[in-house]
Simulated assay, not measured.
Amino acid sequence: MSIQQTSTGKFIDGEEVIAIELTNSKGTCVEVLNYGAIINKFTVKNAKGSLQDIVLGFDDLEQYVNAAYLENNPHIGAVIGRYANRIKDGKFSIGNEDYQLIKNTGTDSIHGGVIGFDRKFWTIVDSEADNQSIVTLEYESVDGEEGFPGNLIVALTFELTENDELILTYEAETDKATAVNLTHHDYFNLAPGGGRIDKHKLQIFASNYLEQDENYCVTGKIIPVENTPFDFRTEKEVSRDWNPEEGYDQTFVLDKIYGDLTLASKTFEDESGLVLSVYTTEPVAHVYTSKYLRVKNGKGGRDYDAFDAICIETQHHPNAVNIEKFPSTVLQPEDLYTQTTIFKISNYK
């Protein structure tokens, strides 16, 4: 097990981008950046014994702030906060206080606003290499940032284990009641040569999904997956039942006891023989097959296009701050926000 911090020689907004490499004895390596808490690389050994990188990202880190990239910011590999997914009309109330956020997707707010946690520098507060490969990053979001109340301190720990598990542990505290819903927006592709993920196989341990309006914002209605294209309770090709022009951009309600760490999904790819298992304490997983992905000059000079990756975004119910029956996303000053999500890689061939 090892951990190494390296200057990338790149500066964003005058601050130096540091790459933290977590490595285990099997050769699995995860590169985390202090900018956006981005997972820029996740290199694993496939069933053929070859190393391959299973996440989208950039060789040239300045691409993360390229104007064309930011125009339709896909949040590649980054942490999302303060609030994952959409908040209807960009507004919510806590007690007698009303809050208006910046609307950055039509009439709604998405992924924390115009400059969310994905575009912030995170402080490297702790790292361990003695038989462990762990790093903790921290960010303080000030009262009023993007319209959210309260000073919020977030700590995000990345741990790579000998079992090829990347464990993400989140903690957050606030000095004023605020809305919090964190996730990580990794674009996975398990095929050795990349390309479209149509033939990836997917299993989601969810009997229900959340209805969305025409702007993809959750309405509050819960719908059974049975006899719908959203039934992934049994493994099937991602593209088997999808609308080929839309793919999937949907939130699934996991079959679990709220707060327990359980298996949310499994993604398989035949050529590599890899399986990605996602475990989480969160109640839902949002599955996005990257319909809107249009990125130039990714790793190896590759352009990334629609349906070139799949995202499994573990979180609380989107728009829950406006839907009382959903698990609360309001954090009080006396409470501690906690969440754990695990990305585990293994071979099934």
Rank of each mutant, 00 (worst) to 15 (best):
D175F: 04
D175A: 04
D175S: 04
D175R: 01
K176A: 10
A177H: 02
T178R: 01
A179N: 01
N181M: 01
L182T: 04
H185A: 00
F188Q: 08
L190T: 07
L190N: 07
P192N: 12
G193W: 12
G194I: 08
G194R: 03
G195E: 15
G195K: 15
G195N: 15
G195A: 15
I197T: 13
I197S: 11
K199S: 15
K199N: 15
H200V: 03
H200Y: 02
H200N: 08
K201A: 10
K201W: 13
K201Y: 13
I204K: 11
I204P: 09
I204C: 11
F205K: 09
F205A: 03
A206W: 07
A206D: 01
S207F: 12
S207R: 14
N208E: 13
Y209D: 06
Y209A: 08
E211R: 00
E211C: 00
E211V: 01
Q212H: 08
D213H: 07
D213K: 09
D213M: 07
E214H: 11
E214M: 12
N215L: 03
Y216I: 08
Y216W: 09
Y216T: 10
Y216D: 12
C217M: 02
C217F: 01
V218H: 01
T219G: 09
G220T: 00
K221W: 00
K221P: 00
K221L: 02
I222L: 06
I222S: 06
P224Y: 08
V225K: 11
V225C: 06
N227K: 13
T228G: 09
T228Y: 11
T228H: 10
P229T: 12
F230M: 14
D231N: 11
R233E: 13
T234H: 07
T234F: 05
T234W: 02
E235G: 07
E235F: 05
E235S: 14
K236W: 07
E237I: 00
E237Q: 04
E237P: 00
E237K: 05
E237L: 01
V238D: 05
V238Y: 08
S239Q: 03
S239V: 01
D241L: 14
D241H: 10
W242K: 01
W242R: 01
W242T: 02
N243I: 05
N243K: 10
P244F: 03
E245R: 09
E245H: 10
E245F: 08
E246P: 00
G247Y: 04
Y248M: 12
Y248R: 09
Y248F: 15
T251P: 10
T251C: 15
F252C: 01
